[in-house]
Amino acid sequence: MHELGIVFYIIRDVKEVAAQNNCSRVSKVVMSIGEVSTVIPEYLTDCWKWATDKEELMRGCVLEVETIPGVTYCEDCGKEYSTVEHGRTCPHCGSGKTYLLHGNEVEIKEIEVI
């Protein structure tokens, strides 16, 4: 639902980096998106074409999404487990004292420029 807003954020950041590097065109943007970041890559791609077409610098720019798996750490038993599969309750010991190690990232990893 908020993917379009995120696309606007990405475009703003990419334009800034492109200007600093005197680039005439950005041909590809690689995003690192966590499995539990609430960003749905398919929706991001949908918004991407519409929004980047309006930017001369980014017209036809390819969006590549790399997924970062969600991994949660259990403070009680010290084990790690898959967040998507088990949520906030540790499957090893049943504890709820857990926190996310990674998987909520919405990061611009790199861009390809001309």
Partner: peptide
């Protein structure tokens, strides 16, 4: 063929808003 350069950014899109 135009030369393509890769720029590493590694920045959260929420960083500026935060």
């Amino acid at each position: 063929m135009e030369k393509v350069k890769v720029i590493e950014i590694k920045r959260s899109v929420f960083a500026d808003n935060d």
